[in-house]
Design a protein around this nucleic acid. Structure first.
Length: 658
RNA sequence: GGCGGCAUAGCUCAGUUGGCUAGAGCAUUCGGUUCAUACCCGAAGUGUCGUUGGUUCAAAUCCGACUGCCGCUACCA
């Protein structure tokens, strides 16, 4: 009986059309799924869409349609894109599916009834586009640190999940299963930043919007994103608390969740804890993949550097896009897409190396023998090397795919293609063709070549499925199972079809123009090319000018900072914080509150009645929930000591310092 | 501030448990070839393997310090 392999992508948020970088995840997952099928696994590949939340509600309102209409539209766009890119998913879940909603309600209720979820209240700054809450200190200029949109203060009744209850069990699990989180560095982040310091309870419901799954027993709440979205992995395969489907019993636990590095925390902490609370086994592995950047920047609409897979597929072909993403993205490091690199990789790898290899070989077979292929067993020393490269390639490919290092696997295929091209030069078929007595040798050479091309085709099945089939068609081969790669010569090929070009070479200038037509901002204009260099020089100069000290600033820059003398009226520690003191200051006009991280060195009585220097025009911020309207100046007296700068008592409060 | 990662040829990166003249792809130059999509093959390369101490018969590879970049995070203000 076949082993099962249950693999998932994260579900895509139905706010807008996904860009090329967003599609990397499902292509990666698809390559792994196809590979596992090739290896004989009974694969179930799940993907889908995350369709709830305030942002969807707002977009629908703006468009004057219902949220359901909106998500129906976008879910279709996403699914069409998946289909276009040949993603061979077996299941497609939408979080608006009735069955999913039912399961989520049940899960929420069960967790509430067993005391893992309790009612409390939530306060924070909420970014609607990102669907996330932020603390004051996370904000950048008072706006969302991710997208830069304005945030709004929200405080509302909410349900919370008691995360801390399970944290020790989870730490234990992660330590017992060292490969649970990959890449390794991400595991350390999770452990050191969240688990070891102690988990905060997680807010799991909202009342500020309606577009979500209502909480059964308290319908003014809707289930907030995590319980809703994460449950898809079990609801999609028929989990339902007390009545679990056969499919669920077969598939769970998942073998691999493929997700973006940005949502690792939710998949490696909250999701496992939810499962523990439900008394279900944990997934076997979470793979946090890197991002595809545009050049060195994150893709975003506002930067104008967004490209879409459907546009690019029209220009380059679906398999070229798949190949590009899979070969360009390494296991743990962010990858990069630019029109130039896309064209270069296409030409050098697909057109010149693989495409040309197939074309020249099949052409020769037709030219010299009318397409007939046979192993006449007239060998030479070159042959053995080619054969062993074929076998080595299989084992390298296998090893890489088994550990999900897909770009290493594509490298292995390219190596074989290069080796095969070299074999042609070594054996010089065109020279053999001139000598009739060498016809058998020539047959053998072509046979070996076609067989090594078969290896390439079979291995390409998971990477570029259409191309793989096309190559097999041209070499007229039906034996393409993975096991047939065990032994060189298993292809049993006797006659090839006509040669047809797989990837025609692209003219760089022409293609660059075509891309510029679609994405005018993506191709840098001449003026922009000089710019980054200039900036770099500038930066270096600034550093040079002031060795060891910060960059020099203008007087005007300094005058932007308003410093005033203020008197400490009251001072007390901030509750639940051991480094923070909360001060009430007289700034000459009014009393203002400042929070300072100096409790380590000062007790309240050391400060009360003293006069200090206040940065009075600092944007207010919240620290540990307490508003701070400015900061007081202190000096790093030594590595581990801080001294507050006190001012002579004769200086009046509010006096300006300059 | 805390935790983690990375610094190798012009560019993008490989370098397994320390071992002979440090590798690949792309780009560059030169040569070869003509079956093929001006393609392929070969050669030339350039490298103080971030800086600096140390361990060792031997270090890009191990340890310490420093510098720079990146990621995560915070009771930084």
């Amino acid at each position: 009986m076949k082993d099962k392999f249950y693999i998932t992508t994260a579900i895509a948020y139905t706010s807008k059309k996904p860009h090329i970088g967003n599609m990397y995840e499902i292509i990666l997952t698809d390559a792994i799924a196809r590979y596992k099928r090739q290896r004989g696994y009974d694969v179930f590949f799940l993907t889908g869409t995350d369709e709830h939340g305030q942002k969807i509600e707002e977009i629908a309102n703006e468009k004057g349609i219902t949220p359901q209409q909106h998500v129906d539209e976008v879910a279709k766009v996403i699914r069409d894109m998946d289909d276009l890119l040949d993603c061979s998913y077996d299941g497609f879940i939408r979080t608006t599916d009735q069955q999913h909603e039912k399961v989520v309600k049940h899960i929420f209720k069960k967790l509430y009834e067993q005391g893992d979820i309790y009612k409390g209240s939530y306060e924070g700054q909420y970014c609607i586009p990102c669907e996330s809450f932020f603390t004051e200190s996370q904000l950048v200029n008072g706006c969302c640190p991710d997208c830069g949109a304005a945030v709004q203060k929200s405080s509302e009744e909410a349900y919370f999940f008691k995360m801390s209850k399970y944290q020790d069990r989870l730490i234990q699990y992660i330590e017992d299963n060292p490969n649970f989180i990959e890449p390794e560095s991400r595991k350390k982040e999770m452990l050191n930043n969240f688990l070891k310091p102690g988990l905060q309870d997680l807010c799991v419901s909202r009342t500020s919007f309606k577009w979500g799954i209502p909480v059964d027993f308290d319908p003014k709440h809707v289930v907030y994103v995590w319980i809703d979205a994460l449950s898809n992995y079990i609801s999609a395969i028929g989990y339902d608390l007390d009545n679990q489907s056969e499919q669920y019993k077969k598939l769970w636990p998942a073998d691999l969740h493929v997700i973006g590095k940005d949502i690792l925390r939710f998949h490696t902490i909250y999701w496992p804890i939810m499962l523990m609370a439900l008394d279900l086994p944990l997934p076997k592995k979470i793979l946090g993949h890197p991002w595809l950047l545009f050049g060195e920047d994150k893709m975003s609409k506002s930067k104008g550097n967004v490209m879409y897979a459907d546009d690019l597929a029209k220009l380059f072909g679906v398999d070229s896009i798949r190949y590009y993403l899979l070969s360009e993205m390494s296991f743990a490091q962010d990858g990069s897409i630019t029109p130039e690199s896309l064209i270069t990789r296409y030409n050098s790898d697909l057109a010149n190396t693989i495409g040309n290899l197939v074309n020249r070989t099949v052409t020769m077979a037709n030219k010299y023998f009318g397409g007939v292929i046979a192993d006449k067993n007239v060998t030479d020393s070159f042959d053995e090397e080619l054969k062993s490269t074929c076998l080595d390639t299989v084992s390298k490919f296998t090893k890489s795919m088994d550990s999900y290092h897909v770009s290493d696997a594509t490298d292995a295929i390219m190596e074989l293609a290069r080796r095969s091209n070299k074999y042609i030069d070594e054996t010089m078929p065109w020279a053999l063709a001139k000598d009739e007595t060498k016809a058998d040798r020539l047959q053998t050479v072509l046979y070996n070549l076609i067989e090594s091309i078969r290896y390439i085709a079979v291995l390409l099945k998971s990477i570029t499925p259409t191309t793989a089939e096309e190559i097999l068609r041209q070499i007229n081969c039906t034996i393409s199972d993975y096991d047939s790669l065990q032994k060189f010569g298993s292809g049993n090929i006797s006659k090839v079809a006509d040669a047809e070009i797989l990837f025609s070479r692209i003219d760089e200038k022409e293609m660059t123009e075509k891309i510029r037509e679609i994405y005018p901002l993506v191709i840098p204009q001449k003026a922009d090319i000089e710019k980054p260099k200039a900036e770099k020089v500038k930066k270096e100069k600034a550093v040079e000018a002031t060795p060891g000290i910060a960059t020099l600033i203008d007087f005007d820059d300094f005058m932007k900072v308003e410093l005033r003398v203020a008197k400490v009226l009251e001072c007390e520690p901030v509750p639940k914080a051991d480094k923070l003191l909360q001060l009430q200051l007289d700034d000459g006009e009014k009393t203002r509150q400042v929070v300072s991280g100096i409790h380590t060195w000062y007790e309240p009585q050391d400060l009360i009645g003293k006069k200090v220097i206040l940065v009075s025009n600092l944007k207010p911020a919240k620290l540990r929930g307490v508003v701070s309207e400015g900061m007081i100046l202190a000096a790093d007296a030594s590595e581990n000591d801080v001294k507050v700068l006190f001012v002579d008592d004769s200086v009046p409060c509010g006096a300006k310092i300059r």
